[in-house]
Amino acid sequence: MPELRLEAVTHPVLGPLDLTVADGEAVAVLGPSGAGKNTLLKIIAGLLPYQGRLTFDGVSMAGVPAYRRNIGYLSQDLHLFPHLSVENNIRLALLFDRTSVGQRRERTRQILNLCAIAHRAQRRPQTLSGGERQRAALARALARHPRLLLLDEPFSRLDRSTKQILWTELGTLRRHLGLTALIVTHDAEEAVTLADRVIILQAGLLLPAAATPPWDT
């Protein structure tokens, strides 16, 4: 069974952490600012060093660089490349796919439609609205059929109504694609809406499942 597993993973601001995310499961990591949520995602994405054991599909990720992990990562600031159109942002993600040019073009078209951003394909990210940028970044993160999707406070910069629309869309998309996802947020409503399971991270440590987050008491 493909799964993400962290065993005694440590970093100067995190852990030791033990966490298992089952295949197709969406887990939300809820916690206040500075709890280490962002660090956790960066470790899994291959962007930060760590100690301990991190496996995906039973394969150790030790020494595997980010560009070989095929993990979709949606950062809080999205980091859409401003010198490229939305379409070219996605095509860049497919540049080293071992598929033909035609297949890559078709995949780009598919993912643009799937994320409902095809009508803005030729626009530069900085000319889009907040919600459109979110869709474009999600499309780019999903372009390579990632095995795991990491979402770092994905909708924190959006207004409430746009946020709710995107929650629904992301839920539908995730179920449609059967994606395993780890979502980091400090918004309890977002965590409950998007995830199958919610875990709480505080001061770099996971709280027991039954614990009430201290900032809610």
């Binding site: 560009y67 979709g72 980091h79 860049l92 540049l95 372009a143």
Partner: peptide, 16 residues
């Protein structure tokens, strides 16, 4: 240029 752009490019399959 925010270095996180290059980091995100890495998660999209681009070598450094």
């Amino acid at each position: 240029v925010d270095p996180d752009y290059a980091a995100v490019a890495g998660t999209l399959g681009l070598t450094p």
